[in-house]
Computed example of a mutant assay.
Amino acid sequence: MDISPDSTSSADIYDSLRDGLIWGRWKSGQRLKPQHLKDEFGCSTAALREALLRLAGEGFVENEKNHGFRAVEHSDETFQQAAHLRMVLECEAVELALKQGDFEWEMALNAAHHNLDYIEARMEQAEDVTPFVKRWSRQDWVFHSTLLGACNSDLLMRIYKSVYDTFRMCAVSRIEGFGFSQLTRREHRAIYDAAIARDLPVCIGAIRTHLALYRDDNRPIERPEQMERDKA
């Protein structure tokens, strides 16, 4: 198959755009202006369009006739579906990972959690978490993907990555603090501790708590600190 001259730069642009969409660099529904993006990436129109069309095919941006591209606007239903499917996949994968994970996996998980915990400790103390969101979003993925990586199923992990990215896009647009709360650090710690202890029921329970963002009746679940504010 022939490779176009812009193939490498288009792949780089795709990675940068997808990464930015996931951590909130571009908000839900925000127009992606070609000239601004070309200046930012220093790329050709062809390379940029190729990357945007690829993202449109994956459901991350919308291609509007005569209006160009914009970040996709996910509905509440899409968010609920992504949260549910992520929970299903994560619980399935972690069961395999806890059975098959070796000492190398434990060390990698320890390192991933240490890095994530460091960022989240800083975010807990910050009045504005925005400067941390990009690094936090990436480290959150490293932690969860490392946790599940020992499942030894490339197909499961590919599907999980797609669902995780959709979930994160929704979360950064719809949840205050880009999806981070004062409980997030403790939730990750609970998942980590249970995984290292190979305690599957506790680990699955911690994952469900971490991902329980919506009730069945479509109302956002109130985290404890939110309920305390409402009582005040």
Score class of each variant (00 low, 15 high):
Thr184Lys: 03
Pro201Ala: 12
Pro201Ile: 06
Ile196Pro: 07
Ala197Cys: 12
Gly177His: 01
Tyr192Ser: 01
Gly177Tyr: 03
Ile175Pro: 00
Arg185Trp: 01
Asp199Cys: 12
Gly179Glu: 03
Arg174Val: 00
Arg186Gly: 14
Val202Cys: 13
Asp193Met: 09
Ala197Asp: 15
Glu176Ser: 12
Arg174Phe: 06
Tyr192Met: 04
Ala195Ile: 05
Gly179His: 03
Ala197Glu: 15
Gly177Gln: 02
Cys203Lys: 04
Val202Tyr: 08
Leu200Arg: 08
Gly177Met: 03
Leu183Asn: 03
Gly179Leu: 05
Arg186Tyr: 07
Gln182Asp: 12
Arg185His: 05
Ile175Tyr: 07
Gln182Met: 12
His188Ala: 05
Tyr192Arg: 02
Ile196Glu: 13
Ile175Gly: 00
Val202Gly: 05
Pro201Ser: 11
Gly179Asn: 02
Asp199Asn: 15
Asp199Val: 11
Arg186Pro: 01
Thr184Tyr: 03
Ile175Phe: 12
Val202Asn: 12
Ala197Pro: 07
Asp199Arg: 11
Phe180Gln: 02
Ile175Val: 09
Ser181Glu: 07
Arg186Ser: 12
Ala197Gly: 13
Ala194Asp: 10
Arg185Ala: 00
Gln182Arg: 13
Gly177Asp: 04
Tyr192Cys: 02
Ser173Ala: 15
Cys203Asp: 09
Ser181Asp: 15
Ala195Ser: 14
Ile196Lys: 09
Arg185Lys: 12
His188Arg: 07
Asp193Thr: 06
Ser181Lys: 07
His188Met: 05
Ala197Met: 13
Ser173Asn: 14
